[in-house]
């Protein structure tokens, strides 16, 4: 890292630069839907990536920029980590053109993740909409890897259409192992091959029994949150047991640049995981 090859005048001093990313090698890159690509990465400096489920990383390609992404694998699987990138803007488009053997540049882990200590010993429900399954997959894997430490584990996943479903290998597995994870899925719009539930994600609450002592994690498109929260209130789940994983424009990832602010909170450092009781008074939290 001592020479950028530009013959420039900048000095490579010992002063820490919070914007300096680390290089990660792409071990695996797989196009999983028309717009989403699944990467498995390993840090090149050998120092690993010591994160908690729910935390984020700023992931970039030089010349294009950086975007915030939640880790999509569990830290219990230590040799590498996963990210899933949906092609939406200039950075994600550039990332999704990369293949095995190429590099991404990563800063992190950043932000605060799910409170695992609070969840341990209790029932857990994860409600994931669309690409919201990616950051929660980190927690799903974590729970599956330490299954005995948790109570009943239920997972709701909603996608726009069957073709938009992510981690289809995982889904096949989860559908089969009801005693390990009680998995329910829905799509907004079915197709000829779809035999499952059609409707918004809240229709899945009728499919199972959720105890009021459940710890609930919600992650999905901005519009989803208030409807899920309403269902949870009906079930009597306390507000401080509801964890919301929020998305905003986290540009710097270190609580400075201001773009991700919800009222006085910086999503990138105060979140992206918040308990509902912590942010219910924030008018800007729910669009």
């Amino acid at each position: 890292m001592s020479n950028c090859g530009n013959g420039c005048s900048c000095n490579d001093s010992a002063i820490d630069n919070v914007f300096l990313p680390r290089e990660a090698e792409i071990l695996r890159a797989e196009q999983v839907t028309a717009s989403e690509k699944h990467f498995t990465l390993k840090m090149k400096d050998g120092k690993g990536m010591d994160f908690q489920p729910g935390q984020i990383a700023e992931v970039g390609v030089f010349g294009y920029g950086e975007i915030p992404l939640g880790f999509a694998s569990s830290p219990t699987r230590t040799h590498s980590f996963d990210l899933v990138v949906r092609t939406v803007g200039r950075v994600s488009t550039a990332i999704n053109k990369l293949e095995k053997g190429q590099s991404l540049w990563v800063r992190g882990p950043l932000g605060s993740g799910f409170n695992l200590e609070e969840m341990r010993g209790h029932d857990v429900l994860i409600v994931a909409g669309g690409i919201g399954l990616c950051p929660t997959r980190s927690l799903i894997q974590y729970i599956l890897d330490r299954r005995s430490e948790f109570g009943k584990f239920t997972l709701f996943f909603g996608a726009r259409t069957p073709k938009d479903q992510l981690f289809t290998d995982d889904l096949v597995q989860w559908r089969k192992t009801k005693d390990v994870v009680e998995y329910h899925e829905t799509v907004d719009k079915g197709d000829d091959s779809w035999k499952g539930n059609v409707g918004v994600i809240t229709t899945l609450f009728a499919k199972t029994k959720i105890s009021p002592d459940t710890r609930v994690v919600v992650c999905g498109p901005p519009v989803m949150y208030k409807f899920v929260i309403r269902e949870l209130a009906k079930l009597g789940v306390p507000e401080n047991h509801v964890y919301l994983d929020l998305e905003r424009r986290m540009k710097c990832g270190i609580g400075k640049c201001g773009h991700c602010q919800i009222n006085d909170k910086y999503v990138c450092v105060d979140g992206p995981v918040f308990t509902y009781s912590d942010i219910k008074h924030l008018e800007e939290a729910f669009a």
């Binding site: 890292m1 001592s2 020479n3 950028c4 090859g5 900048c10 630069n17 914007f19």
Partner: peptide, 13 residues
Amino acid sequence: LEFGPNGVKSCIN
């Protein structure tokens, strides 16, 4: 930062 074919460099000076 400055980036180039050989990597990246901090610009705190």
